[in-house]
Design a protein around this nucleic acid. Structure first.
Lengths: 216, 216
DNA sequence: TAGATTGTTAATCGATTAACAATC
DNA sequence: TAGATTGTTAATCGATTAACAATC
């Protein structure tokens, strides 16, 4: 399914969550309608880009009126899959894994549910992080299958990450949120979203030392 | 300074840390030379892109030979500013702030030094995270000035982030590594590198639900 | 209706890839 | 030298912006 439509460029996809965030703020402020022009000024992008982006998914606006904030928020949520069950596990219960488990916004604002953390460290197994148990990594296969988990955050050291990613996929995981500083090579029906913190920090450092007067 | 050269596109800059990472692996494996073709196969990009990217900064290669791994690694490190002192502070000593302080790779592999964490929470003030003290946020201004800190990781809740960012800049911070889910509007000589985890997760979710057979 | 604003086509801009002369 | 591979120009591709007819 979804195979007949022309595929959407990843540049567009990456902008959707930001639209969603701004619409959430508008909604919270009881603003009911917004034009692409107004939104473009708030977001500091072109109105043209907003209209082009949204029209990849359908005509959500109305000529002469603009967009209904509530409706557009809901529709973008659906496009992003936030209307579906998004149960996830966190593989690696170290500092970063625990920090992710603690971050309530994923659940409260977007509906993601962390079902369990997994680790090999006996000192961690059995503890709870905000009500979520750390389980032995040996139990992971059955857990994934029993709960039909599709999303795994991978917060293991980089030397363990590729092998674990391979197994996760064998057990049914379809999307890996990868925090290990390594590239994972997986079947093409599996999605990898990398969060390479060190690379992000290096980009920052470059810009600090090379900033031009005409920044964007 | 740096104002006369044509500015480098951010697409190129964002690829540099990945080149750096691959070169680090080659170096660790005692590989002394590599051609753009070989590297392109490992990294799954085009050789043309590698040569174009590198030539923004100078001719690091040699016809008929390729690139010297050690030299190229060093040069890219310099471009990224890793040869400079990169002292940083972490503002917000919650789970994420502590997780960053704990992540030794920033220091061991790239030379970043976390000088202190800051928080308002009396329960956190005084504790140490991997030898780094959590200080009262009231001491931050003098600390930044005394240690000439230019880089701050901002791991506060989103409602506190914009005001704090403004102050950090007043006190001399030139680069903010922003983990708060909000856009910061700061003077253009200040760099902001966003790590918007929720947005990254939503992108993953979109792709899980909409993956095509012909993935890239 | 008149005014506003979308949806969409066309034009522009920038980034990627291909090609090849230069040269080690 | 002959072969390999860069540095760089030219061609292509894709993404962004501008423009405007459609229409609420």
């Amino acid at each position: 399914m979804g195979n007949s439509e022309k595929s959407i460029s990843s540049a567009v996809i990456k902008r959707l969550p930001r639209y969603f965030r701004y619409l959430g703020v508008l909604k919270a402020n009881n603003i009911t309608r917004i034009s692409s022009k107004e939104l473009s000024e708030q977001m500091m992008v072109t109105a043209s880009q907003i209209r082009q982006d949204l029209n990849n998914f359908g005509g959500f606006g109305q000529q002469g009126y603009g967009y209904n904030v509530d409706n557009l928020y809901t529709e973008i949520g659906k496009i992003l899959g936030l209307d579906k069950r998004n149960d996830m596990i966190i593989v690696g219960a170290g500092n970063l894994g625990q920090a992710l488990a603690n971050y309530q916004s994923f659940n409260e604002d977007y509906g993601y549910k962390v079902m369990a953390l997994f680790d090999v460290n006996p000192k961690l197994i059995g503890i709870s992080v905000r009500g979520v148990k750390v389980l032995d990594i040996d139990e992971m296969e059955s857990f994934i299958k029993a709960h039909d988990i599709k999303i795994a955050a991978l917060t293991l050291p980089k030397d363990q990450a590729p092998e674990m990613a391979k197994r996760l996929v064998e057990w049914g995981i379809k999307g890996i949120w990868n925090f290990a500083p390594i590239d994972l090579h997986l079947p093409e029906d599996v999605t990898v979203e990398n969060v390479h913190l060190a690379e992000s920090l290096m980009t920052l450092t470059y810009n600090i030392h090379n900033r031009e007067e005409s920044g964007d």
